[in-house]
Simulated scan of single mutants.
Amino acid sequence: MSDADMMQLYSKRILALAADIPHLGKLADAQGSAMKRSPQCGSTVTAHVRMEDGRIAGFAQEVRACALGQASAGVLGQAVMGASREDIARGADQLRAMLKEDGPVPDAPWNGLEVLIPARDYPNRHASIMLCWQATLAAMDEVADPG
């Protein structure tokens, strides 16, 4: 990877998102928690959720990933409160399509993921970018929420 490619990949906007990830840490009253790890790079994300009426009412994430994975967690964290499982799954599916199939930028509220378009050309980073989404979905699946 050339220096110019690396600079584009780790743009100021990506680094800003990575430096200001919402909801970092653990959630004391979590109903579901899940950790996901990328075997390619060793990045990990653990998501903790509390659900009410089928929507996220409490959220925390522990993110140990590259700047791209952290930026993805930053975008997720900005809009995760009040989201349903379907909302998170749709965002994850749209992000995956954007990265792997040259799909469009995900719909709002996940449209901040456009910052990760340069990562399309680096498939070895895709797993890290997807971790927070996978961990959040797995944590939500742990919750026995009748609503």
Rank of each mutant, 00 (worst) to 15 (best):
26 K>M: 15
115 V>E: 14
53 D>E: 14
7 M>S: 13
42 G>W: 08
117 I>L: 10
101 E>D: 15
126 H>P: 09
130 M>H: 09
67 A>P: 00
127 A>Y: 00
44 T>A: 01
43 S>T: 05
146 P>A: 15
8 Q>P: 02
8 Q>R: 14
82 G>S: 08
87 D>T: 02
71 A>V: 07
38 S>Q: 10
46 T>H: 09
83 A>I: 03
44 T>W: 04
89 A>L: 12
69 G>Y: 06
28 A>S: 14
106 P>K: 05
78 Q>C: 06
82 G>V: 07
145 D>S: 11
24 L>R: 15
74 G>V: 00
93 D>I: 00
86 E>R: 15
91 G>Y: 07
39 P>K: 09
40 Q>E: 14
72 S>T: 05
88 I>F: 08
75 V>E: 11
66 C>M: 06
109 P>H: 12
109 P>L: 01
57 A>R: 12
79 A>K: 10
119 A>I: 06
22 P>M: 08
126 H>K: 07
7 M>C: 03
62 E>R: 08
111 N>S: 15
19 A>V: 04
43 S>Y: 00
19 A>K: 06
128 S>F: 01
56 I>K: 00
29 D>L: 08
78 Q>K: 15
102 D>A: 13
129 I>D: 06
99 L>I: 00
118 P>Q: 12
9 L>D: 01
79 A>M: 09
125 R>F: 10
46 T>D: 10
116 L>S: 00
80 V>C: 06
99 L>Q: 01
53 D>R: 12
106 P>G: 01
27 L>Y: 09
3 D>A: 13
108 A>W: 03
30 A>R: 04
63 V>Y: 00
146 P>F: 14
46 T>K: 13
74 G>Q: 03
67 A>N: 00
75 V>W: 09
105 V>Y: 11
53 D>I: 04
123 P>H: 13
140 M>K: 07
119 A>S: 14
89 A>E: 15
103 G>E: 07
29 D>A: 10
128 S>M: 04
144 A>I: 06
121 D>G: 11
147 G>E: 15
34 A>L: 12
78 Q>N: 11
53 D>P: 01
30 A>L: 09
137 L>T: 04
122 Y>V: 09
54 G>S: 05
27 L>G: 02
124 N>C: 08
55 R>G: 12
88 I>G: 04
76 L>Y: 11
43 S>A: 15
94 Q>Y: 02
141 D>Y: 03
100 K>E: 15
143 V>Q: 07
92 A>Y: 12
88 I>Y: 13
11 S>G: 05
69 G>A: 09
146 P>W: 14
46 T>F: 08
66 C>Q: 02
56 I>Q: 06
59 F>S: 06
41 C>L: 05
79 A>W: 08
140 M>L: 13
60 A>D: 03
44 T>S: 09
71 A>F: 05
124 N>R: 12
147 G>C: 06
15 L>P: 02
56 I>G: 07
